Computed example of a mutant assay.
Amino acid sequence: MYATPAVLIARLLAGELDVAMASSFAVLTHPELTLLREIGVTNTGPAWSVRLFSRVAPASIRTLALDTSSRSSVAMARIILAERYGVQPVCLDVAPHLEMMLADADAAVLIGDTGLTVNAEDVIVLDLGEEWHALTGLPFFFAGWIARDTAALEKATPMLRASLEAGLARLEEIAEEEAARLGIPASRCYAYLHDVMHYHAGEAELAGLEAFRVRAQRWGLLP
């Protein structure tokens, strides 16, 4: 099934799914869940699709509208604002529509298709992948395969590995299909899928995930 990361985690916790591709933040807030550590959606530097849009200077942000479809990006934004700009804004859950979000708040976080394609004028734009790398020097581990128990994950792992390799083998075709759906150039979509996002996790990506855990704990974002 296809759904937002937040919905997938809710269904995983409810026992409706055995394994789901969902926000890495879930394994920090629910330690009973198991993460497949070798595969993930990761990024080092500009992420393109995870961005903060602000009507004011970042250090002056007092209210922040959030797209809650990904808890990882929400927590990431709050950490970056606290550590790089010294602010802890009041956070509002708002539907992911930039004009509506900025009507209610000083700044807004948009992710995914909307974050990648939205056109914004007369606002300050922060790429949160770039901001995270500037803060930590590490990649960000956005999402991964998460299971309710180790046995389910071990059973699914060969299929997940094969699925990743099959997808990478037809990346140009996927980019063309997604570009047509989103209304963006195929070259930009391919660059995003091939150069901006990465799918094999190693020591650096796991160090980034640990840095995320430490900072989320520091700022009271974990139970």
Rank of each mutant, 00 (worst) to 15 (best):
L153Q: 04
E210C: 04
V125R: 12
R148G: 15
T4Y: 11
L135Q: 05
I80Y: 00
M197C: 02
A204W: 07
H198Y: 08
V41M: 10
L153R: 08
L35D: 03
T68S: 11
V123C: 13
R71G: 08
F140P: 00
A207P: 01
D113H: 04
W48F: 14
M159Y: 11
H198M: 12
P139Q: 13
G40T: 03
S23K: 01
L81G: 06
V7I: 12
A186Q: 03
E38T: 14
C91L: 02
T44Y: 15
A77T: 15
Q88G: 00
P139G: 09
I184R: 11
D104G: 00
G86V: 10
A204G: 00
A147L: 01
R11M: 06
V7G: 01
L116G: 04
A47N: 12
R37P: 03
D113P: 00
R51Q: 12
F53C: 05
Y190R: 15
D104M: 14
G129R: 07
V94L: 08
A152Q: 10
A216E: 07
T150E: 15
V74F: 05
W132M: 05
I61L: 13
A166K: 14
R213K: 09
P58M: 13
D106R: 11
A75Y: 03
V118M: 05
L206D: 02
L221C: 11
M1L: 11
L36M: 15
D106L: 11
L33P: 02
A82Q: 10
H194D: 14
I9K: 13
I61H: 11
R188V: 12
E173A: 14
A169S: 15
V50M: 06
F212N: 02
I184A: 06
V74T: 15
F140D: 00
P185T: 13
D127S: 05
A156T: 03
G112H: 11
V196A: 11
R51G: 02
V41R: 02
L36G: 09
L160P: 05
F142Y: 13
R62E: 14
A103P: 02
T44C: 11
I9D: 07
A175Y: 09
C189T: 01
E131R: 12
A57I: 05
A216P: 04
L126V: 15
A108V: 13
E205C: 00
T68D: 10
W219V: 04
I184G: 03
A82E: 12
N43T: 15
L52S: 01
R188Y: 09
